[in-house]
Design a protein around this nucleic acid. Structure first.
Lengths: 126, 126
DNA sequence: TTCATAAGTAACATCATGGTTACTTTTGTG
DNA sequence: CACAAAAGTAACCATGATGTTACTTATGAA
């Protein structure tokens, strides 16, 4: 398990990596709707082997997106939204300037700026 | 290049996979601040070889996070925030119920629900 | 035209990922 | 206790990701 929040770079890797597989995203959806599901019950919802599902779960737990606890011979699984919350906090902050309306035209404006830069370089050389 | 938005599952894979590497996230940060940067100039900001940087760029372009265009013998690079916007749209929608204050207590409530389930199963068997 | 620069391609090495089957351990129940 | 069920571990395989060096192509400039 990885208990620290994704404040260091490597932790973001774990979160994004975990989300970069449809099966794992689907696991999160399922666990969101049915918290406390056991490993076997979750595995039943997938075509691949139970062991494959357990490996996906290990990835999700490493990323902190799933937490679990033993309950007799079963293990109960819970979705933990915190890492996604943190992804949201960090990235919308950093890119919020782009969100609001001025998004569509980025490339054209960027090209204009590139022409400026190029011209400036040329002028400097001469 | 991958021109379609991440509405199909496989496209989400590409976006998350692309974000799951610190170097690539840093490339996005750099390109956000300096649109129109050339491949070589971008590569200069990294320790790894130019070829490695080009491979990272290929991943980012596949995901639609970077667009580029030739300019003479150079290639100019631009950050495209659209896929991140779409990630935000989809995931905050789907998980918004968790965002608002009731987050901290998920596990405890889930455990209570699990006990309910377990009890119900037991009752059914008897 | 000649040369240097920017970018791209090929081939390869290494390690991680995602899957399998077979076996072991833990634990509840007849 | 004896057995079945749930989970976990080990070993293996195929493929993909990340990096390298060496070479090729395209283009701007002397």
């Amino acid at each position: 398990m990885n208990s620290r929040p994704p404040s260091e770079d490597a932790s973001w890797d774990l979160v994004f990596q975990a989300l970069a597989h449809e099966s794992r995203r689907r696991m999160l959806d399922i666990l969101k709707d049915r918290p406390g599901l056991t490993v076997g019950a979750l595995a039943g919802a997938f075509d691949v082997s139970r062991i494959a599902v357990m490996k996906h779960l290990a990835v999700l737990e490493e990323a902190g997106l799933v937490v679990s606890q033993k309950d007799g011979r079963a293990r109960r699984l819970y979705f933990n939204p915190m890492p996604i919350q943190l992804v949201y906090d960090r990235w919308t902050d950093q890119y919020s300037a782009y969100w609001s309306g001025q998004v569509a035209d980025i490339k054209r404006r960027a090209e204009a700026r590139a022409r400026e830069q190029k011209k400036a370089e040329k002028d400097k050389r001469q």
